[in-house]
Computed example of a mutant assay.
Amino acid sequence: TANTAPIRKDPARNQEILDRIPAGHWAEPYELMGISVFLASDASDYINGAIIPVDGGYLVR
Rank of each mutant, 00 (worst) to 15 (best):
D55T: 08
V54F: 01
A27C: 10
P22A: 13
P53G: 01
D42E: 15
F38N: 01
T4F: 04
Y46L: 13
W26Q: 03
S44Y: 00
R8H: 00
A27S: 10
P53C: 04
I7H: 05
G57T: 09
E31P: 07
L39V: 02
G57I: 03
P22H: 14
I51M: 10
A50T: 12
Y30L: 12
I17Y: 05
D42G: 14
D55A: 06
V60A: 15
A12H: 10
R8Y: 06
D45S: 14
A43P: 03
N14M: 05
A5L: 07
E28W: 11
L32P: 02
V60K: 11
R8V: 05
S36R: 08
F38E: 00
S41G: 01
A23G: 11
G56Q: 00
R20N: 03
N14L: 03
P11T: 06
A40E: 02
I52P: 08
A43C: 09
G34A: 14
P29F: 09
H25S: 13
P53R: 01
P53Y: 02
L59N: 00
K9P: 06
N48S: 15
Q15G: 10
H25M: 12
A12S: 13
G49M: 11
A12E: 12
G56M: 05
I17C: 05
T4H: 07
A5M: 00
N14I: 10
D10W: 07
P6D: 01
I21P: 01
E28T: 13
L18Y: 07
T1P: 08
I52D: 04
A2T: 01
N14Q: 09
G56W: 04
D45T: 15
I35D: 01
K9G: 00
E31C: 08
E28V: 13
A12F: 09
V60P: 05
Y46K: 11
T1L: 09
